[in-house]
């Protein structure tokens, strides 16, 4: 569906590459997670893929056709949710979606249905200048679905949302996938990626460090661990022990045999831990 080959980009001649010769492929109906810390180049890649930034080198192909050759109809097929909400503040949530729908040449979705989907039904007739940041973000997300897109670009879709709302949005994304929509999702939230993505690519300093399914990445890089809380000399102690390490294994046996256990949890490595392991840096 989408094939990116040897893509690179720099914002000025003197700069280092913001996107440094990256390649990846997204199949139809797949959620592809582009994961990395702030400033890693995620949004830049999304802007090149949507034509907002001019491609400087490499190639971006949509069903074999270059982004440079795409005509206006291309925008009838895609939906984009920006990280920073961009709505007409003086228009209501409903008007923002209704008017945006009028710009497409394809059948569109009822704005009320979408606003209901993202929990904005009750504030549909309120001007968006009075929306909170999270409400604006949900409105922009709803707007990205107005034209029933074949490809959905989501830039940090749940960033800054409360857990209930974030869960709701994740369900909507999952439903879009079930409909066959191809989704390119950028985030620095590994839990979101883990929950939603079929495939993830770790990006750091403009380079793709690794790319695979979350399950394979865990198998490849993750170590099984146990977090144990126990009493020693009247004090509570806490240890994270990796079962694949011989020392940790015997230490765990020793704790169980000689100390009262308060809690003990087996742990699977998270994508975030794997990211730290492969890049040497955190996600924030």
């Amino acid at each position: 569906m989408i094939e990116v080959k040897d893509l690179y980009f720099k914002y000025s001649e003197k700069d280092v590459f913001s996107i440094d010769h990256i390649s990846f492929k997204i199949d139809k109906g797949e959620i592809f997670g582009f994961l990395g810390p702030n400033g890693a180049g995620k949004t830049t890649v999304q802007e090149i893929l949507t034509g907002l930034l001019k491609q400087q080198g490499g190639s971006v192909l949509y069903q074999g056709k270059s982004i440079e050759e795409q005509k206006g109809d291309f925008y009838n097929k895609i939906g984009v949710s920006f990280e920073f909400p961009n709505l007409y503040g003086k228009l209501t949530g409903y008007e923002n979606l209704k008017y945006f729908a009028g710009l497409f040449s394809v059948p569109t979705v009822d704005p009320n249905f979408l606003l209901n989907l993202v929990g904005l039904k009750d504030t549909a007739n309120k001007r968006t200048e009075f929306y909170s940041k999270g409400m604006k973000q949900r409105a922009v997300f709803a707007r990205s679905l107005i034209n029933n897109p074949e490809i959905l670009f989501l830039d940090e879709p749940v960033s800054g949302l409360d857990p209930t709302t974030a869960k709701n949005i994740k369900q909507v994304i999952q439903k879009e996938k079930e409909k066959g929509t191809t989704i390119f999702l950028t985030t620095h939230n590994m839990f979101v990626a883990e929950e939603l993505c079929d495939k993830v690519a770790f990006i750091n300093d403009g380079k793709i460090i690794t790319e695979d399914t979350p399950k394979n990445l865990k198998l490849q890089y993750g170590n099984k661990s146990v977090e144990v809380e126990y009493k020693m000399n009247g004090h509570t102690q806490k240890e994270l022990l990796f079962l694949e390490k011989k020392d940790d294994k015997s230490k765990l046996q020793n704790i169980i045999a000689n100390h009262p256990i308060i809690t003990m949890h087996s742990k699977e490595a998270t994508l975030e831990e794997i990211f730290i392991k492969v890049t040497g840096r955190g996600l924030i």
Partner: peptide
Amino acid sequence: KEGIIKAYRISPIN
């Protein structure tokens, strides 16, 4: 200011 032009640029308007 509102970033509307960016929204237009990913829509099929001319």
